[in-house]
């Protein structure tokens, strides 16, 4: 085993370093302002700071390493259970009548509805100066 480990040591030094070395991202790794705005819109999470953008850039640079792997003619693996039939239960109602319990975790309800503020289409939703026009309309979402 000792000899084995020593032998492995040299081998792994080559492979292992590849895994932890920093790498330069394609195209300099900069994420454009448009992409940032688009991501914030999609994720409904704001970056909030330059560090957060830098973190994304690092995450992308790290992901670039995937491109070193030859995946020609390899099918993507979505689930390790791909060879088994997916179980579907019969489409019968077996539970229910728990509206009260479900609603109790919401901060704002009217009768059996969750209440949301008015307006979904506000381009600059992060900008608190912009007020939606139809102020009086509140969205409700049925349970």
């Amino acid at each position: 085993m000792w000899a084995r480990v020593a032998r492995l040591g040299r081998w792994a030094l080559v492979g292992g370093h590849r895994a932890f070395a920093t790498e330069v991202c394609r195209g300099g790794g900069r994420v454009t302002a448009e992409v940032i705005a688009h991501l914030e819109r999609l994720a409904l999470v704001d970056f909030g700071s330059r560090e957060a953008v830098a973190r994304l850039e690092k995450a992308i640079a790290f992901a670039e390493r995937l491109h070193a792997v030859d995946t020609e003619r390899v099918e993507p693996l979505e689930s390790v259970l791909e060879d088994r039939c997916l179980y579907l239960r019969p489409d019968n109602v077996v539970e229910g009548n728990c509206v009260e319990e479900i609603l109790q975790n919401s901060h704002r309800v009217v009768e059996e509805y969750f209440v949301a503020p008015p307006g979904m289409c506000c381009a600059k939703y992060f900008n608190s100066e912009l007020r939606p026009e139809e102020e009086s309309w509140w969205c409700v979402k049925a349970l």
Partner: peptide
């Protein structure tokens, strides 16, 4: 309560830590 999206975004800013927000943004990318 400015708009639904403003509410979503502010809720998520207050509710998630940096790590979670960072992973959400990377994942969306």
């Amino acid at each position: 309560d400015l708009s639904t999206e403003a509410m979503y975004a502010a809720t998520r800013r207050e509710g998630f830590n940096d790590v979670v927000r960072g992973r959400i943004l990377s994942g969306n990318y």
